[in-house]
């Protein structure tokens, strides 16, 4: 299983840009620290089938209805995206 940072973990809720709460333990944790091994990844564009990377922090959302396709960025949370599909 790949390493997951807290900020990329499903059960992490950010308080601010550097820290958040681990819903499984109730503890405040640092966003950029590694989460325990079995932690589920947060749906983010970078984990989505429809995301096509273009450059370092940029890409295209193939699921977009726009013409041309609208951009997307890898770090965006996609829990509410109806088109999200795990890679």
């Amino acid at each position: 299983m790949e390493k997951v940072l807290y900020r990329d973990a499903r059960n992490y809720v950010p308080i601010d840009v550097i820290k958040g709460i681990d819903h499984l333990t109730g503890q405040t944790v640092m966003a950029d620290k590694e989460a325990p091994k079995d932690y589920e990844a947060m749906p983010k564009c970078k984990n989505c089938n429809s995301f096509k990377a273009e450059g370092e922090q940029m890409g295209i959302c193939e699921g977009s209805m726009s013409d041309p396709k609208f951009f997307a960025y890898p770090d965006m949370v996609a829990v509410t995206c109806e088109m999200y599909a795990n890679k």
Binding site: D16, I18, Q57, M58, F71, Y73, D75
Partner: peptide, 13 residues
Amino acid sequence: FGVRQEEIPAMLK
């Protein structure tokens, strides 16, 4: 306001 580095390119775009 603090913004994560990962969000900056998209914010500017």
